[in-house]
Design a protein around this nucleic acid. Structure first.
Lengths: 215, 215
DNA sequence: GACACGGGCGACCAGCGGACGGTGAGCTA
DNA sequence: TAGCTCACCGTCCGCTGGTCGCCCGTGTC
C-alpha cells in the first residue's frame, strides 16, 4: 500500500517534469531513483496505472487518477519510441516499421516506460485522433463531459460521433485521413471507427437515393 | 501422364492468349473448358507447374518448361488480383491491403489462378525487381545466361548483383526504391536483397574510411 | 526404363494485429 | 471498513509474413 503510493507519486512527477522540460525523452533506466521499499524492486508484479478521468485541457488530475493531457502525451511518447526503433532498424538494414507495432511496445517497456502497453493505447486511439484532427472540438467535449461528471468510458464512446462527422465531411475515407496526418499516420485505424465510418457512408448513400426517388 | 500433357498445353495456351489479348483478366472459371479426362477434374491433387528455364525476352519456352516472360507476367497478374481485392475491401469498409498479402494469394486461387502461389512469387521477387528497374540489364542477363546454358537457379542468383549495383547508386535505400516504383511497391522487399544492400553500404563506408585514413 | 538433378510449392513457425473480460484499485458512505 | 463500480492490461486467438526442404517432374543415357 505504502509502496504503491510512492510509485505513483514518482509517475506523476515524471509527467509534470515532462511538461516543463520541453518534452525530451530521458526516461530510460529512471526506475528506482527514489526509495526502493516494499515489492517495488520487481519483487512482486507490476502495479497498474491510475485510471484516467475526464479532465479539461491543461488540468492535472488530482488524487489517484491520471488526466487526458497525460493520456495524449503517451501517444506522443509512443511516436518517439517508434522513431527510435526506426533509426535502429535502418541502421541495421532491417525492416523498418511505419506504425506503432508490437516491437515498439516491447522497446518502450525495455526502455523503462512500463506504463505504456498495447491494449491501453489501442483502446483510446480514436480519442487521440479527435484530439489531432480537431483540437477545439476535442477540448469542448472534454469540458462538457467533465462538467456532467461523466466517467472515462462515456467520454471515450462520445469521441466517435464528432470523429465520424469529420470523416463524413471528408468523403468517408478514414484511412486517407489517418495517413495524411503526420502524428496519426503511425496508428492503425481502429476497427470500430472504420465500421462506423462505413455505415455512415451507406446511410448517406441510401438517403441520397431516397431523395433521388422522391424528386 | 496424358492428363498432365493436356493440362499444361492449356496452361501455355492461356499465356499465349494473354499476350495477344492485351492482358485483360478473364480467367476466373476457365478451368475444364476443354477435355475433362483423367484426374484433372479435381479428382487427384493439383499438378505442379512446369519448371522455369532461362529464356531471352520474347522467347516462348519449348517442351515442358515455362519462360521468364511468363514468370514476370505472373507478377502483373498478382497486381491485378491485388487491385481487385482492394476494390472489394474499400467497398465493404474493411482494411485495404497495399501489398500482395496472403489474402491476395487466396483470392487468386479462388479465382482459378491456381498456378499462382506465395513461395514461388516470393522466390523470384528480386528478379522481377531487376526487370522493373532496368529492363535492359535484365534482358542482357537473360541472354547471357541462356547462351551459357545456365539453369534457373544460377540466373536467379545472378540477378542480385546488378540489383545491388542499382541500390548502391541510389543511396542503399532498397525500401525507398521499391516504394517509389508503381509496380514494385506492392511487393515486400526480400530479406536477402535487403541484407545484401546493407552489407554493400557497410563495405562502402569502410572503404571510404580507409581512404580517409590513407589521405 | 532407370537414374540424377533441381526447383515447385505444401506446410510449418514465430510473432503479428486485434480483442476481451477478471482482477483489483479506487471512491463513497 | 465494507461494498461496488469500472477500467487496466495479462493473455489469448486467427492469421500473417517468411521460409525450408520433400517430393516428384523432367531430361539424359
Amino acid at each position: 500500500m505504502v509502496a504503491m503510493e510512492k510509485k505513483n507519486k514518482k509517475q506523476r512527477k515524471r509527467w509534470r517534469e515532462k511538461m516543463n522540460d520541453d518534452d525530451d525523452d530521458d526516461d530510460e533506466k529512471v526506475e528506482d531513483e527514489e526509495e526502493n521499499e516494499g515489492k517495488n524492486i520487481n519483487g512482486g508484479e507490476r502495479q497498474r496505472e491510475h485510471p484516467f478521468i475526464v479532465t479539461e485541457p491543461g488540468e492535472v488530475a488530482r488524487g489517484k487518477k491520471n488526466g487526458l493531457d497525460y493520456l495524449f502525451h503517451l501517444y506522443e511518447q509512443c511516436r518517439e519510441f517508434l522513431i527510435r526503433v526506426q533509426v535502429i532498424a535502418k541502421d541495421r538494414g532491417e525492416k523498418c516499421p511505419t506504425k506503432v507495432t508490437n516491437q515498439v511496445f516491447r522497446y518502450a517497456k525495455k526502455a523503462g516506460a512500463s506504463y505504456i502497453n498495447k491494449p491501453k493505447m489501442r483502446h483510446y486511439v480514436h480519442c487521440y485522433a479527435l484530439h489531432c484532427l480537431d483540437e477545439d472540438v476535442s477540448n469542448e467535449l472534454r469540458r462538457v463531459f467533465k462538467e456532467r461528471g461523466e466517467n472515462v468510458g462515456a467520454w471515450r464512446q462520445a469521441c466517435y460521433k464528432p470523429l465520424v462527422a469529420i470523416v463524413t465531411r471528408q468523403g468517408w475515407d478514414i484511412d486517407a485521413i489517418f495517413n495524411s496526418h503526420p502524428r496519426l499516420s503511425i496508428w492503425y485505424v481502429p476497427t470500430k471507427l472504420r465500421q462506423l465510418s462505413h455505415s455512415e457512408r451507406n446511410n448517406a448513400a441510401i438517403a441520397s437515393t431516397s431523395v433521388g426517388i422522391n424528386c
